[in-house]
Structure formats: structure tokens, C-alpha cells
């Protein structure tokens, strides 16, 4: 299985690069440079990371075609490939509605959003240099966006729950060799503090859970539990109190958290259901320690999966 880590861009450039270098040396397959409307610009950082790393692939995104025009996204990716070679992947998606609104970018007519995303994906894929190995992924949750992802090389899901992942695979009509199924949930692997006491992972999981579309809430019978919390969040904003209102069992469906040993179990399960890619989302990559612990987890995983005694 391909391992990735998402590195956020809130820290100074030198620290971001240091984390990417540690991930690269530690054998992480892909370093994802996330884009978020209130921090440093991911395409520039991706270019700088490419200069300082050797083996890893570099993921750019999620880039929203609502912020960057599809032609600008094409220009970004073609420039990166021209400068640094065939090492890049792209993650597309509409992006967080509230965050976009803060910078004056509106979803527009919601009934046409999915179609506009599809058109953007098609435009981008048509215009990317066709001789490179750049993979385009769609960040998706609900059935419509999952359907759009079939125009891409794969889908990245931000939930960790096996039942939900299997549901996606069934929506896609089963697993195919050429289409990659990836999970990109909030993660915290290798830390000793119990997950239910770690506000960072709980908050990241809460952001995903509370941002679920009504169709997913219905599909997985989460509406009754989450609707009052969503209502309260809309009124008061996201706070620790709001996060604490969510049952830990629900937060666990939207995050990967635990020891190196429990991570091995997660991956074994994912492999069985057909997941190809795991990207450890925030807060794992928020600190250098988080990156180092993931590298240790990868090393341990490699030992076990390569063991001649493994049955």
C-alpha cells in the first residue's frame, strides 16, 4: 500500500521543508502539500520541497478550481513537472465552503457544483501534458462527487471507517485495477496519549464529521447524532465544547488514531477491502515529531509485511 503524509503550511517554509525531507528519507511514498486559503501557497512550497527531496512523490492540493481557474491549475502542474520531473500528483475538489466564503469565493448555484467540478476535471486532464505520469485525484465524500472522481485516476476519501469505504467501492461498481482508492483521514499514529484525550485529532475528525453532506448523514444514520451539533456549530462556531458533544465512536469513524501496532491492523483491514493509498492527514504532519513517528510506523510495518514468517 502506498503511504502518504499531509503536511500543512502554517509553519515557516524552512520547517515545512524539514518535515518533507524527514518523510522522504523515512520512505514515505508521497508528501502531500495541502492548500488552505489562509496559509502559504502550496504550489510554491511543492516546488521547494521537490528541490530538497529525492524519492518521494509530491501531492499538490486539495486545489479548488473555484479559487484557481482550471487553466491556472494546469499551468501550475505543468510548471512543476517541467522544473522537477514526473513526481507530482494533484488533488482536486471544491474545498471547504466556509473557508472559501471568507476569501470571496462562492460555491454558486449548488445544483450545478458537481457538474462544474466535472467540467474542471475534464479541462484539466485534457490540457495537462500527456506525456507525464501525473495522477489526478478527486477529494470526495458523497455519491455525486464520487461519480465525478471516475474521470480521475482515483479518489481520496476523508473518512476512515471501513463500512463507509466499502460503500464507496460498491458505488464505483467494485474495485478496478486502474482506479486508485485512497483514504485521507485526520490521523495521529504512534503517540502514547489516548485518542479521546487528544484535542487535535478530535477536532480534525469533528471538522470532517460536521461537514458531511446530508446524503451521507442519512446513509450512515448519523443525522440524529450530528444534526444538533451541526446546528450549534453554525450558531457559535467550532469550539472544544462542540467537539466534546460528538460521541467518540463517531469521531473514530473519521480518523486514524492509535499505536504503531493498531496502525498495522488498520492497514491490514484496508488492504483486504481494496484500499490502495493511505494518506495520513492532520494533525500527524503538523509537527516534526508526528512525521518522525509515522516514519517509525512505516519501518515497523515494512518489517512485519516483509517477514518470511508472516502467514
Amino acid at each position: 500500500m502506498e503511504w502518504g503524509i499531509a503536511i500543512n503550511l502554517r509553519e515557516p517554509v524552512s520547517e515545512i521543508i524539514e518535515k518533507a525531507v524527514v518523510a522522504d528519507h523515512g520512505g514515505i511514498d508521497t508528501v502531500w502539500i495541502t492548500d488552505y486559503p489562509a496559509t502559504r501557497l502550496s504550489p510554491i512550497i511543492a516546488s521547494e520541497v521537490a528541490k530538497k527531496t529525492k524519492n518521494c512523490r509530491i501531492g499538490v492540493g486539495l486545489l479548488s478550481p473555484l479559487i484557481y481557474s482550471p487553466l491556472h491549475i494546469v499551468q501550475i502542474m505543468n510548471t512543476l513537472v517541467d522544473m522537477h520531473g514526473d513526481r507530482f500528483d494533484l488533488l482536486l475538489g471544491p474545498g471547504d465552503r466556509t473557508k472559501l466564503r471568507d476569501i470571496g469565493v462562492d460555491y454558486g448555484n449548488i445544483s450545478t457544483l458537481v457538474e462544474r467540478m466535472r467540467e474542471s476535471v475534464i479541462t484539466i486532464r485534457e490540457r495537462l501534458q500527456d506525456d507525464n505520469e501525473l495522477r489526478v485525484f478527486m477529494g470526495a465524500q458523497g455519491p455525486k462527487m464520487i461519480e465525478v472522481s471516475t474521470s480521475c485516476d482515483g479518489v481520496l476519501l476523508n473518512y476512515s471507517d471501513s463500512q463507509m469505504i466499502q460503500w464507496v467501492i460498491s458505488l464505483l461498481g467494485g474495485k478496478t485495477k486502474d482506479f486508485k482508492i485512497g483514504v485521507f483521514p485526520p490521523s495521529l499514529i504512534g503517540f502514547s496519549k489516548p485518542c479521546n484525550e487528544h484535542m487535535g485529532i478530535k477536532t480534525s475528525a469533528a471538522v470532517v464529521a460536521l461537514g458531511l453532506s446530508p446524503s451521507i448523514l442519512r446513509e450512515f444514520r448519523l443525522r440524529d447524532n450530528l444534526h444538533p451539533v451541526i446546528k450549534r456549530m453554525k450558531e457559535f462556531g467550532l469550539s472544544n465544547d462542540i467537539v466534546e458533544m460528538i460521541d467518540q465512536n463517531i469521531l473514530d469513524r473519521f480518523s486514524l488514531c492509535g499505536s504503531i501496532e493498531s496502525n498495522i491492523k488498520y492497514l491490514g483491514n484496508y488492504q483486504q477491502i481494496g484500499v490502495d493509498i493511505i494518506v495520513y492527514g492532520p494533525p500527524q504532519g503538523a509537527s516534526l515529531e508526528g512525521v518522525e513517528r509515522l516514519v517509525a510506523a512505516k519501518r515497523e510495518h515494512n518489517k512485519i509485511t516483509r517477514s518470511p514468517y508472516r502467514d
Binding site: P37, R40, L41, I67, G104, V105
Partner: peptide, 16 residues
């Protein structure tokens, strides 16, 4: 370009 994108690019370039 969105003004937020211009600002973010500027901040990143200033650091580099």
C-alpha cells in the same frame, strides 16, 4: 487573481 492568493504567494516568496 484572488487577493488572498496574491497575499499568500507574497508571504511565501518573501520567506523563500
Amino acid at each position: 487573481h484572488n487577493i488572498a492568493t496574491i497575499a499568500r504567494a507574497a508571504l511565501t516568496l518573501q520567506e523563500i
